[in-house]
Computed example of a mutant assay.
Amino acid sequence: MGSKRFNESKGPSQRQLRAGELVRHALVDILAREGFRDPALESVMISVTEVRPSPDLRSAKVYVAPLGGGDAKALASALNKSAGFLRGRLGREIDMKFTPELHFHADNSFDTASQVDQLLARPGVQQDLDGEDD
């Protein structure tokens, strides 16, 4: 009766995870070898950190970040403008029934991790952490 709702809360299926990794690897290869006319993409090394396909595998959220720092939101916006082109290239690279529609999003997890590191490095926090060893 409520099994569909129960499955949605469990997270991505193995099929979604495999498809996401397949798409991620193919996109990394495509982005490494393609030249872009958009100045926001020209000399940027792009990290594809995660691909989350929808349950039907017809669309995918692609999380990206510029390597070496930069504006992840501007990068995602520029990639969204090239999404149709990238989807066409992707369709030639992967063996899936449908080539997913790509939706690029800025991955800010590196920034968040850096902020956590900075917080943990504060003298007051270090003092508290050193006190836990007793």
Rank of each mutant, 00 (worst) to 15 (best):
E34Y: 10
E34S: 14
G35E: 02
F36P: 04
R37G: 14
D38E: 14
A40F: 06
E42Y: 04
S43F: 14
V44W: 00
V44M: 07
S47C: 06
V48I: 14
T49G: 15
T49L: 04
E50L: 05
R52F: 06
P53G: 11
D56V: 00
R58V: 10
R58D: 11
R58K: 15
S59I: 13
A60H: 01
V62I: 14
L67P: 05
L67V: 15
G69F: 07
A72H: 04
K73M: 14
K73V: 10
A76S: 14
S77F: 13
A78V: 10
A78H: 01
L79E: 03
N80C: 08
N80Y: 03
G88S: 15
G88W: 10
L90F: 01
L90Q: 03
G91N: 05
R92C: 08
R92F: 13
R92W: 07
I94C: 07
I94L: 08
M96E: 12
M96R: 05
M96N: 02
M96D: 08
F98E: 07
E101C: 08
L102K: 00
H105G: 03
N108P: 00
S109K: 09
F110R: 02
D111T: 12
A113F: 04
S114M: 14
Q115S: 15
V116Y: 00
V116P: 01
L119K: 04
L120F: 05
R122W: 03
G124K: 02
V125I: 15
V125N: 00
V125S: 01
Q126M: 00
